[in-house]
Write a protein that binds this DNA or RNA. Structure first.
Lengths: 158, 158
DNA sequence: TTACTTTGGTTGATCCGTCAACAAAAAAGT
DNA sequence: ACTTTTTTGTTGACGGATCAACCAAAGTAA
């Protein structure tokens, strides 16, 4: 019953209510704000911030390991790392086990810069999560996982 | 209680669980898929599709009216419309009441092209929405609205 | 009227995300 | 051993998104 109603209402669904569009607008808004906070507090980009977060939670890493965990684009990541090494924010040492790879890690300066941004980003994250009830948070993440899965399904069907 | 637990767990939250990052990945995945479907079925872009959807649900429109309702970038929209007029997908007539504005509408060809894509897009939308329960759908949209609002709040505080 | 502000639309600059091509090294298959 | 395939990382090209500058018309206020 809920489904049949759904099927019909889709016919005239305005753009503003479509899932992809809403996610798209939310994404634009949230990442623009994150970028601003990062630029103002630490002068780094969102991509650089993400590299820092990965280093903090997992320790020294190779770019490939970051790609595996995050599905970030390896080209984009490569450029971000180059910029960070250049700016003295991270160190890059050749891997012992793999001649192709290099292991990146915080430099002292990088850690300082990271700590400039972290309280702002953490407070924002807290605010974002606390705007929802626990049930809403679970529903949101659950719904995002389901959407993710359906996109994969549709992909496989083609 | 739930909140204090939340506050602490944020300290070591991996990137993969952060809200902005998750929304970002979901956005990338969903819009890439939508773009593919649109390209394959009708040879149009996501932006062009959105213009079509606006015309279908609201009838003839000026670009400014679209911007007001969707918050799409007016520059981006201007270029999309130029391309669509050029491709014969929409008509552009000078507004009677405002010498600056022009009113756009479907051409016959545009309507045909739109109808090529619509069943695919509608089916996808249905599948996306049906992957969730009614409660989850409400939670998702509610959560997105709340996140949207918090971003605005944070913006205002700066 | 005449000045000032707001709105509608176009354009250019710039940045970000995505994709494909490529070289070097490693791993797997024979 | 040697050939083939996979993985790692860099680079170039391209399209999309964002932002600011700008012009023309409308609206507002004096």
């Amino acid at each position: 019953m809920a489904d049949s109603m759904l099927d019909e209402s889709i016919l005239d669904m305005p753009l503003e209510q479509m899932v992809t569009f809403r996610v798209s607008r939310l994404h634009a808004k949230m990442s623009a704000q994150a970028s601003n906070i990062l630029k103002n507090s630490a002068g780094i980009s969102l991509m650089q911030w993400r590299v820092f977060v990965m280093l903090e939670t997992h320790g020294k890493l190779t770019p490939a390991a970051i790609v595996r965990r995050t599905e970030l684009d390896k080209g984009q990541l490569s450029r971000a790392i180059k910029g960070m090494v250049n700016a003295g924010l991270i160190s890059s040492a050749p891997s012992e086990s793999d001649q192709r790879a290099h292991v990146i890690d915080f430099t002292e300066k990088g850690l300082e810069v990271f700590h400039l941004a972290r309280p702002h980003m953490r407070q924002r994250q807290t605010r974002l999560l606390n705007s929802m009830t626990a049930a809403e948070r679970e529903a949101l993440f659950g719904a995002m996982e389901k959407l993710d899965a359906v996109v994969d399904e549709l992909e496989a069907e083609q």
